[in-house]
Amino acid sequence: MKGKRSMALPYVVWSIAFVVIPLLLVVYFAFTDKNGAFTFDNLSKIVHYLPIFAKSINLALIATIISFLIGYPLAYCIARSRTHVQRNLILLVMLPMWMNFLLRTYGWMTLLENEGIINKLLGMIGLGPFEMINTQGAVVLGMVYNYLPFMVLPLYSILVKIDRSVIEAAQDLGANRFQVLCKVLFPLSMPGIVSGVTMVFVPSVSTFIISRMLGGGGNMLIGDLIETQFLGGSYNPYLGSALSLVLMVVMLLIMTVMNAFDEDDMEGMLV
């Protein structure tokens, strides 16, 4: 079947026009000022925004760790259930994902409000009211909630393949529960952990909706900052591009590090 390489041509042209060139434009704008002259100003201005970068990465890390702590046992429980139960449980994990995340996050707004249901329930047993909405905790909760399925699904698909007898063998050879977890389960499920962590971390770092809906005005993240440069009040695509460029580079670095943990690399997966 030779000579059909040319069939990929329309796609390659499309990708260059709408993926590669736009990204090059981001780089171009990052190094340009309003008059189109070359400048380092945009990038050097980023120093002022480092706290926001740090906060985004910090909150996303916390959300990723919590998702892992909730998601790993959940995936394990599902993987160790009976086969037909497994299918239903996985469907239950995936079902919320098919509802738009804006609606689900809006649901949390209702729950967390000062006059909201959680405070009302707590009030009944004499607690609170607690200030939950418009806090960093609410933002982390929103991230965990929205991206937990992304953690559970890859973990489940790898855990379900682990042979039970491997765990039994480890137990027979005298490993306690903790050793089984650290020396058998974690190493065997590493590819799932890597993709789960990436799939939670990447959208968490770059979100601008969750922070706005649940974090109020005081919890600006890097995504919000970029968004306001393009569509918000402070229109400045040059600074916005510089911020995006830095975000992209940071993400690439993190993913390279993550991929180093994962031995079998995908063909053509970046770097």
Partner: peptide, 23 residues
């Protein structure tokens, strides 16, 4: 070609969005 194919998949969505908006 596969590297280009993975770009929109692994790039944060906001980057894909603003880069196309710029274009």
């Amino acid at each position: 070609v596969m590297n280009i194919t993975y770009l929109p998949v692994i790039n944060p969505e906001i980057i894909t969005g603003i880069s196309m908006m710029l274009l």
